[in-house]
Design a protein around this nucleic acid. Structure first.
Lengths: 222, 222
DNA sequence: ATCCAAAATACAGAAATCTGTAAGGACATT
DNA sequence: AATGTCCTTACAGATTTCTGTATTTTGGAT
């Protein structure tokens, strides 16, 4: 089993809970905790430089910022920074987020090794996740692996996302068209944009632009 | 100090943490916990019917739903249901949410007694919140009470919220008008709705309906 | 080079949005 | 009763949205 673990979680009640589980139920005793991303990074650096590196990082995604000035405010930055130095460190993300799209993105883009969703079964899931990751498995939360419709997810390309974003800012299609032309993005015909947005209507079962943006906001894609 | 407390929090690691704090640091020993809203409600009803009612409810806002069928999925419904039976019960909401508008809404609309934000100082804040609420104070989280612009919040009445909601569902103003007439809500003239929405445009500096809904979603009011 | 299918675009018309003006009613003050 | 203010509503016109159809362009396969 892992012998040395770093826990980055700003929410101190959870922080303590995680450490207790690692300690009592998994038998890991060499644990360091950090309530700030920057603090986590410093502890990581120190251990790495002392040739006593961490084997596993368990981190939250969002860190509230208080009075202290932080250079990192999200777990993603922390993961990137740490992986750039120690690429083989195992990473478990442990967060509130339960939207399939977002969790999948973490695995695909940042190659995390496991994800545990804060929730009713966090204790059990955390234990099996740590065990699985130790055996080099990729541990997806059960909500996701059981969910059949996560595979049928609609794939949105960059232009789709751009359109959704611009629409959510209240720009008209004419204005968006001009922006696309300025940035040399094709297609940029007004009716091409219409068509694309209409397809999004179908995908998300939206009645109109306002509805579409509301849906996408709810899904957390914007 | 309170002698009997109900803790509704689906996230079990936090759940345990809260109970430990109440126990060890505040000296409340008669605590019941619930990981589901419905479960919390049943425990409340039982205690109330047994003439051994709870004095304080500490609840999260969002409850993830798993396989069990729940009639209540949000802490707000739980609060409403419980308050309709025992109006004088003290309520502390304890949640991830840190958007001022939403927290203010909880105090104004649901008359909660205290709010604690999950975060770095949750332990300290929870302790002082329970103490303050016991002394009939209204305990606003420090992030909010220090924030000067929280006072300048735009006040939205029920009709405003209704309109925003319907617009976010993609209904046209004609459709919304008909709904208002059906429910005997005035004003319901088409241009009255227009005027009201235009006022919302001004309030939120929105360019059009889509932009407005996006802004309101971001603020967490919808 | 030719053909085909998919994508991009133009165009058009019905519906909806947004904005302004004006008319009518409710209500309080004088 | 008269006045003024606020709110509701009707109406109108310019713009935008949304949905079709038709035409052109693109890129790959033969």
């Amino acid at each position: 089993m892992f012998t040395k673990v770093l826990v980055a979680e700003d929410y101190e009640i959870a922080n303590q809970g995680i450490i207790r589980i690692l300690n009592d139920q998994i038998g890991i005793h060499n644990i360091q905790e950090a309530k700030y991303c920057d603090d986590a990074y410093l502890k990581f650096r120190k251990a790495y430089n002392d040739n006593d590196a961490f084997e596993l990082l368990i981190t939250d995604l969002s860190f509230k910022q208080d009075h202290k000035v932080q250079t990192r405010t999200s777990g993603i930055e922390l993961i990137q920074d740490i992986r750039s130095i120690q690429p083989d460190i195992k990473v478990i993300v442990y967060s509130q987020e339960n939207r399939p799209d977002k969790i999948n993105m973490l695995f695909e883009k940042y190659h995390i090794n496991g994800y545990v969703c804060k929730g009713q079964n966090a204790i059990k899931e955390l234990i099996s996740c740590v065990n699985g990751v130790y055996q080099n498995q990729k541990i997806v939360p059960p909500e996701l692996s059981n969910n059949p419709d996560s595979g049928s997810m609609i794939h949105l390309d960059d232009l789709d996302m751009l359109l959704l974003e611009e629409l959510s800012y209240g720009y008209t299609k004419k204005e968006i068209r001009l922006k696309l032309i300025e940035q040399n993005i094709t297609p940029n015909g007004e009716s091409s944009i219409d068509k694309r947005v209409s397809r999004l209507f179908d995908n998300f079962k939206a009645k109109n632009t306002t509805h579409l943006v509301a849906i996408v906001k709810d899904l957390g894609l914007l």
